[in-house]
Each structure stands twice: as structure tokens, then as C-alpha cells.
């Protein structure tokens, strides 16, 4: 699979992944189904079992979940494939964000622009609140996760200037303790 068709593999990867860059509105979960269809069913780059393995490992890696696309590309086309995948996955959406940012700036100072900028704060707040619930559900929605979420929020209320590192590490330690105590699978 890697030898004779290698030259056509990189463009194929790009063609599969670039549309997914713009397909993921509000999170990467929307790209899993089309990614699985393309990689497993259509192009048969990897087996369904491999897809699930890579999916599982990606959930525990830092970075956006769409890195799964780059991991699959690494598996089928090595480092070149992974790099092509990164460009395909993040260049289109970044270019769009850049373009929108430019248009936004061009109208700076106009009354409607100022009004919109002020009015967007509650929208942003709502989107963040929605994000909290979505992430909580994605993380399994269990009591331990909920407790850590509330605990971290409480600590930040008390110690506003705390750096994120100790909080993230504390979260890891709590879960690790629960795991060792047998509360986590």
C-alpha cells in the first residue's frame, strides 16, 4: 500500500483532509465520521480496528482531536504524510480565520462595528458556558470529573492569579489517585 502508489498518496491525503478542516464547526467531533469513511471504507488506508486504536490514543494526546487525521496520515505515508495532513487540516481554517479577522479590522471605528463588538460579549459568554457542558459530557460526565471541574473553578475563585500548570497537574494527581484506588477503570 505504501510503495507503488506513494506519489499519489500525499495528494489523496490532502484531498481527504482539507475539506475536513472547514467541516469542523464547533469541535472536531464532526470530522470523525467522514474521516473514518475516507480512511477505512473508501481508501482502505487502515482497518476499522486500527482507526479505533488511533482514535483512542488521540483522545489522550494534547492538541486538537483532529490530529487523528495526521496520525492516520503518518501511519499510511510516514512523516511526509503527517506534514501534508497538518497543512491540510489547519491551513484552510486558519486562512479563513485570518481573512475574517482582516475584514473585521477594516471596519474598525464604524458605529455598527463598535456596537457589534460590545454586543458580542454575551454571545462569547454563552458559547463558553455551552463549551463547558459539551466538554463535561464528552469527558464522560461522571462525578469525579464534575468534582474536579467545580474544584478547579473554586480554587481559581480563591486564588485568581494561579498559573494553570499546578491546576492541570492537580487534576492529573486526583485522577491518578482515583485510578490507583480502583475508582477508575
Amino acid at each position: 500500500m505504501r510503495d507503488d502508489s506513494f506519489s499519489s498518496l500525499l495528494p489523496a491525503l490532502f484531498k481527504v483532509l482539507a475539506p475536513l478542516s472547514l467541516a469542523s464547526v464547533g469541535g472536531a467531533t464532526a470530522i470523525y465520521a467522514p474521516l473514518q469513511f475516507a480512511a477505512v471504507d473508501s481508501h482502505q488506508w487502515i482497518s476499522g480496528r486500527e482507526f479505533l486504536d488511533l482514535f483512542a490514543i488521540c483522545r489522550f494526546l494534547p492538541g486538537p482531536s483532529s490530529l487523528l487525521g495526521a496520525m492516520i496520515a503518518w501511519k499510511v505515508a510516514g512523516l511526509a504524510g503527517a506534514l501534508v495532513a497538518m497543512v491540510a487540516l489547519y491551513l484552510p481554517s486558519s486562512a479563513l480565520a485570518y481573512g475574517v479577522g482582516m475584514v473585521w479590522d477594516r471596519h474598525r471605528g464604524k458605529p455598527w462595528h463598535t456596537a457589534l463588538e460590545r454586543g458580542v460579549a454575551p454571545v462569547a459568554a454563552g458559547l463558553v458556558v455551552a463549551g463547558v457542558f459539551a466538554l463535561f459530557q464528552l469527558s464522560g460526565g461522571d462525578v469525579l470529573t464534575g468534582s474536579v471541574i467545580v474544584g478547579v473553578a473554586a480554587v481559581l475563585t480563591w486564588r485568581k492569579k494561579l498559573h494553570p500548570f499546578p491546576l492541570l497537574i492537580a487534576g492529573a494527581v486526583v485522577f491518578e489517585t482515583a485510578h490507583l484506588a480502583g475508582y477508575l477503570a
Partner: peptide, 26 residues
């Protein structure tokens, strides 16, 4: 890596703490 269960727990804990930061932000 898939065979290291304690790593899963640690990453889940980091994720939970990050959501907590988000809650405090909101």
C-alpha cells in the same frame, strides 16, 4: 501507550481541570 492505563487517568484529570478553568472563566 495504549497499554498504560495510568496515563489515561492522568490525561482525563488534566482535561477535567481544564474544563474547571473554563467554568471559572464563564
Amino acid at each position: 501507550v495504549l497499554g498504560v492505563p495510568w496515563l489515561h487517568a492522568a490525561m482525563a484529570g488534566v482535561a477535567a481541570a481544564a474544563i474547571g478553568m473554563l467554568l471559572r472563566f464563564a
